[in-house]
Design a binder for these strands. Structure first.
Length: 265
DNA sequence: CTCAGTGTTCAGTG
DNA sequence: TCACTGAACACTGA
């Protein structure tokens, strides 16, 4: 559930189910990894009885805005998920947090692989780790010449810079590959070596992909058929794009990278 | 049994 | 001090 569009979709769904509701009961798993530095008791105390007024997001982080502080801040890691339960008997696996609402519905946050995090914050956007994030493309990017200046000082591969949350908050592995594919840029190119034209293309492509993915609520079945997304998974040998171009899998920026040499020269 | 994996952090290096 | 790299983290599912 993890990159910007998926997290934004989770925020919108959470708002639909939770906005205006009061939390009448809280159950919190004693997981010292996902609950980094916060005791279940503190989370339960913070949430029980509070009204959920709004939900915010920046990058891959998501928080609920209550009628009192502190607020819960979620990060989905690799496998974090929100669930909105109806049947009282439903007990999802890997449960980290469960809220019972004043309409008898329940909300759950689960995380199988435990790379997700649940924190408490008084001002999420202005304290770590959110404070240290770079540009969230859904809130806008610097103009092309400013972005070119920003990238001009980065000697890492452009794929690694796209994944750097301190530069582009919310971009993850599939989005980075999709952007470089559509902008026709080789993932291993040094960021500082990109031309002004290439940076401008990267910028508009990133904005377009993020907006489109968010517009379809991160439902990948509704991503355009031309996207690399549909063919990039699994390090499958001899995989090809919809147009028949060969897809290659490499490691760039420490991550599996799918790219199309015939297009990204 | 082995290994990849929609992510972040931290130690080591230059 | 900073940018960068690669390993580590934890666990499921193929």
């Amino acid at each position: 559930m993890p990159e910007l569009p998926e997290v934004e979709a989770a925020r919108r769904t959470a708002l639909r189910h939770l906005k205006g509701r009061r939390i009448v009961a809280v159950r919190c798993a004693p997981d010292p990894i996902v609950l980094s530095g916060v005791s279940p008791a503190r989370i339960e105390k913070a949430l029980r009885g509070a009204f959920i007024e709004d939900a915010g997001r920046f990058g891959k982080h998501l928080w609920f805005e209550l009628d009192r502080k502190p607020w819960p801040v979620f990060h989905f890691g690799m496998t974090g998920e929100f669930h909105f339960l109806k049947a009282p008997a439903e007990h999802p696996r890997f449960l980290k947090l469960e809220l019972v609402l004043d309409n008898d519905r329940r909300f759950a946050f689960t995380d199988a692989r435990r790379f997700g995090r649940l924190r408490l914050a008084h001002d999420p956007r202005n304290e770590p780790p959110l404070r240290d994030l770079g540009h969230d493309p859904l809130f806008g990017l610097p103009e092309a010449d400013d972005l070119a200046r920003l990238l001009g000082s980065r000697k890492a591969p452009i794929k690694a810079v796209l994944l750097d949350q301190g530069t582009f908050a919310g971009v993850g592995n599939w989005i980075a590959d999709e952007v470089l594919y559509q902008a026709a840029i080789r993932p291993k190119r040094k960021a500082s070596n990109l031309s002004g034209v290439e940076v401008a293309r990267l910028r508009t492509t990133l904005l377009r992909i993020i907006r489109r993915a968010v517009a379809v609520n991160a439902d990948s079945d509704r991503f355009p058929a031309s996207w690399l997304f549909h063919h990039r998974w699994g390090r499958v040998k001899n995989s090809r794009t919809a147009a028949g171009a060969a897809i290659v899998h490499d490691t760039v920026g420490g991550r599996t990278t799918a790219w199309v040499p015939s297009r990204q020269r």
